[in-house]
Amino acid sequence: MKNQLVFFWRCIFGPKLYQTYPFAIPPPSRNDQQPTHLYTKNTAESLSDNVFFVLKLSIGILKVTWPLCLIYCYRKGLLTYENGIMTLRIVGCIAIISAYFMLLRGIGRFVNPNYKIFIEQFYKVKSNPTKEARHNLLSKFDFSLSHWKPDYVIESSFIRKLPMISTTKNDLINRTESTLIDRLFHYPSLFLGYLCINVFGRRLMFPGSLQLLRQMMERPLLDGRTNLIVRYNAKRYLLRTADGKNIDTIFIDRRESNETRNGQTLVITCEGNAGFYEMGCVSTPVDAGYSVLGWNRPGFGESS
């Protein structure tokens, strides 16, 4: 009984499973036909994921529009104690609904034999995270990397050792803010810039990080990863940056290949602001026989 409860708990908070990689590239199928290697959710898990997607999308929209909503509520006189209590009640109801659908998703996964096989192997590797076991799991299953321990961590101490501009803070302030008025407006302008960047600036600069676009591109991204891992024996690695972000990377090693002479040369591809390594410029050096390292920008694909 205890083991079943632990297993159910793992199903509730376990990573999202996308697919099981096939042994060979599957033939092209119609858009209305799902390949057999893709993970098939039951009704409970599918409904729960749809609810969580709507919640994430709503939170994303609220992050962009909250300054306008705050101004509107202020002008209409809605910032009252009673409305604050009502807002807390709504937030509480949303939290209860989220907890309910988390349990429902756990039940759906618990009765799904494919997910049970995956979660058992996932926690076996997590308890004994050898390099071979990690690569073996990533070569068999495609899942969310939010629960995955990084393969490489870039320490912040390394960043501090990089060459810096030899200008002191006081000199920089004196050059850019020569008058008293400029200095008075320094911190308000920084705060306004911070709001603009974090509210809508990053989303305009990097549209690939939008939740809606990621949902629309899910199937092509899965097909792209399947092609790279199954056909070219690519390996996925997770990098942790100095500021705590996880970068999803893929490495195609051609150094020991007898089919090409370019395998000793490593090509690092960098996609555009709406590109992903699964369906971007990685294919060009791969077709030319080079060893390739592809990566997704923060917020793109499985990068956080």
Rank of each mutant, 00 (worst) to 15 (best):
M1N: 06
M1F: 03
K2P: 00
F8Y: 15
W9E: 06
W9K: 07
R10D: 13
I12E: 03
F13K: 01
K16Y: 05
Y18C: 00
Y21P: 03
F23I: 09
P27C: 11
P27T: 11
P28R: 07
S29T: 04
R30N: 12
P35D: 08
H37V: 02
Y39Q: 07
T40S: 15
T40K: 15
T40R: 14
K41S: 09
L47Y: 03
S48F: 05
D49L: 07
N50E: 12
N50F: 05
F53K: 10
F53C: 10
L57Q: 08
V64M: 07
V64L: 04
T65N: 04
W66D: 07
L68I: 11
R75T: 04
T80N: 10
Y81F: 14
Y81V: 08
M86G: 10
L88N: 05
C93M: 06
C93P: 00
I94T: 10
Y100E: 05
F101Q: 03
F101S: 03
R105E: 10
I107N: 02
F110N: 01
P113S: 04
Y115R: 04
I117V: 00
F118D: 06
I119A: 05
I119S: 03
F122S: 06
H135E: 11
K140P: 00
F143Y: 15
L145R: 08
S146M: 00
K149L: 04
Y152Q: 08
V153F: 02
V153H: 03
I154Y: 10
S157I: 08
R160Q: 12
K161S: 12
M164I: 04
T167P: 01
T168Y: 14
K169L: 12
I173S: 08
I173P: 03
N174I: 06
N174E: 15
T176Y: 14
T179A: 12
I181C: 11
I181N: 12
I181G: 08
F185P: 07
F200Q: 00
F200W: 12
R203C: 01
M205V: 14
P207N: 09
P207E: 05
P207Y: 06
S209Y: 02
L210S: 12
L210A: 12
L210H: 09
R225S: 13
I229Q: 12
Y232D: 08
N233F: 02
L239F: 05
D243E: 09
K245W: 00
N246Y: 03
I247K: 02
I247C: 02
I247W: 01
F251M: 01
F251P: 00
I252E: 01
I252L: 09
I252K: 02
D253H: 00
E256G: 09
E259Q: 13
G263F: 07
G263I: 05
Q264W: 11
Q264M: 08
Q264K: 15
T269D: 14
F276Y: 15
Y277T: 12
C281L: 11
T284Q: 13
P285E: 14
V286D: 03
A288S: 15
Y290Q: 14
S291W: 01
L293V: 13
W295H: 11
P298G: 03
G299L: 11
F300A: 02
E302S: 04
